[in-house]
């Protein structure tokens, strides 16, 4: 279903994993040796190939793919956080590219260490990188060097954290309780402290209070 058709110049069957001596992926084979040597690894799953590099190297590869190999369509940029896993670095920035004539999807994964400040931006290669880099910055705190407009995109400007990091809790750190209760009193609107966060089924599922309540309720009752 997902097989991306290989370009016509390669004989069919060469890229299949069953072959004992697999030929290099046509996109990889077309890279100049200097750039090609930067590729650490190659992952293939479901007929789709991803190249793995370290972070500043992806810029040269993407430039080559854009101008020499005619990958006109940048589908997506995103990142993955591997916190607490046995990986060589913490982050991976992922680029999904598409070539229209031969309908080829490839991915480029770039390892990004936690302490490195920024990755090179690709805004000058594809305009669609503008917002996807902004969103990746918003969600992971990764700085794209060269993006002209790297404000927060989805979260409020003053939001204190980067929500898609693995060490940020799903329910946040209390940011969603920051508003006053607005209600009418007499002829004017007044602000009060917000109503207490109710603990009941269907509201605030899996809060510590809820878990405690369930544990208390599920004990056998004394007669």
């Amino acid at each position: 279903m997902s097989d991306d058709t290989p370009p016509p110049e390669t004989p069919p069957g060469d890229a299949s994993p069953s072959n004992q001596q697999p030929a290099p992926h046509p996109v990889r084979a077309a890279l100049p040796p200097l750039i090609e040597s930067r590729i650490l690894d190659e992952v293939t799953h479901g007929g789709q190939t991803g190249f793995i590099v370290r972070t500043p190297d992806q810029r040269a590869i993407l430039e080559h793919l854009r101008f020499e190999q005619n990958f006109e369509f940048l589908k997506d940029i995103t990142a993955i956080d591997f916190l607490g896993r046995d990986t060589i670095e913490r982050f991976q920035v992922v680029y999904v590219l598409y070539r229209i004539p031969d309908k080829l999807n490839i991915r480029l994964h770039a390892w990004l260490p936690e302490e490195v400040e920024s990755v090179p931006s690709v805004v000058d290669l594809w305009d669609s990188a503008r917002w996807s880099e902004r969103e990746t910055h918003d969600m992971f705190g990764i700085v794209f060097d060269g993006n002209p407009d790297l404000r927060r995109l989805l979260m409020p400007e003053d939001f204190p954290a980067f929500p898609l990091l693995k060490d940020y809790p799903l329910k946040g750190r209390g940011e969603r309780r920051q508003f006053p209760l607005v209600r009418p009193r007499g002829n004017e609107m007044v602000e009060d402290a917000p109503l207490p966060y109710p603990v009941s089924i269907g509201r605030g599922m899996h809060t510590p209070e809820y878990v405690e309540e369930v544990q208390r309720e599920s004990k056998p009752r004394k007669k």
């Binding site: 997902s2 992952v43 799953h45 479901g46 789709q48 991803g50 589908k75 997506d76 999904v96 999807n105 991915r107």
Partner: peptide, 8 residues
């Protein structure tokens, strides 16, 4: 483990 795919 480690499998990844972009499907559209």
């Amino acid at each position: 483990e480690g499998a990844s795919i972009y499907s559209s």
